[in-house]
Simulated scan of single mutants.
Amino acid sequence: MRTTYMAKPGEVDRKWYVVDAKDVSLGRLASTVAAILRGKNKPTYTPHVDTGDFVIVINAAEVKLTGKKSSQKLYYRHISNNPGGMHTRTAGDLKANDPVKLIETSVKGMLPHTPLGRKMGMKLHVYAGEDHSHAAQKPEKLDITNLI
């Protein structure tokens, strides 16, 4: 009788990947990065264990918003619990002012909304420019145009 392989938290081998967001559609970038953070690109994927890898996204300021998303896609946040405390920002405004927040919000929205999903989100590092501070981890460059 065969048994299904279930990964254990201590057995997970994690890698570091660098993804260049320059001229890549935001949704395609976010879904690919979320799959890598969850570990769905590995044969040892187990839904209840964090088997994902670390991802560094560079050039977040140059991500592409297709169609009318820059003016019509809205991001909501609640400043307070008071009535009228909800504020909205367009994706174009968020890209211009805080491109790191735009990509983090998009990717974390595609992860599970559980404690395990929050742990997976901690492995995401986003930078607006080319430079990042993770050279010591020896990250591999990942060309996501081949994965899409």
Rank of each mutant, 00 (worst) to 15 (best):
P9K: 08
K108S: 13
D53C: 07
P112S: 09
D50H: 15
N41E: 13
Y5C: 03
N82Y: 13
Y5W: 15
I79E: 15
K119A: 11
H132C: 05
K40C: 04
D98V: 04
H87C: 06
P9R: 11
D143T: 07
E104D: 15
N146Q: 14
K108N: 10
K141D: 13
H125Y: 15
K73N: 02
A135V: 12
A21N: 01
H113M: 08
T44G: 09
D23I: 04
N81T: 09
H87Y: 09
L26G: 01
T44D: 13
I144L: 06
R28N: 10
T90R: 09
L29D: 00
A7S: 15
T32D: 06
A96Y: 05
A60G: 07
I79R: 14
D93G: 12
A60F: 06
E140M: 08
P139N: 08
D20F: 00
R89Q: 12
K123F: 09
T51L: 02
L102Q: 01
S31E: 10
R28S: 07
V12S: 04
A136S: 12
K138V: 04
D98Y: 03
V63M: 02
V24S: 00
N82I: 10
T51M: 04
R14E: 14
V100I: 15
L74E: 13
E62N: 15
I79F: 06
K73P: 01
M86H: 03
A30F: 01
L74N: 07
P43L: 08
S25K: 03
E140V: 02
I144P: 03
K108L: 09
N82W: 13
A136W: 10
G84F: 05
S133L: 11
F54T: 06
L29K: 00
N59F: 07
T66L: 10
G109M: 11
T46V: 10
P83H: 07
V63S: 01
S133D: 15
R14S: 09
D53R: 05
M86D: 10
L102K: 02
P43A: 08
A34K: 06
P47E: 09
R77T: 11
D98K: 08
K119D: 14
Y76P: 01
N82G: 07
R77Y: 15
Y75N: 02
K68H: 12
N41Q: 15
P99Q: 09
G85K: 11
P112D: 11
L94T: 05
V18S: 01
K73V: 02
T3L: 12
N146T: 14
S25P: 01
H125F: 12
Y75K: 07
R14A: 08
G121C: 06
V12R: 03
H78Y: 14
K123M: 13
G67M: 05
V107Q: 00
Q137E: 15
V100F: 01
M122C: 08
Y75I: 06
A135P: 01
L65N: 02
L147R: 14
V55A: 05
S133P: 05
P43F: 10
S80Y: 11
D20V: 00
M122F: 05
L102R: 02
M86T: 13
G92A: 09
G39E: 05
E130L: 13
R89E: 11
V100Q: 04
T114Q: 10
N82V: 12
T66Y: 04
P115N: 11
Y76N: 10
M120C: 00
N59K: 03
R118S: 05
K40W: 05
P139C: 04
Q72L: 15
N146C: 04
K123W: 06
A61R: 15
I36E: 05
M1F: 15
E130F: 06
I58D: 00
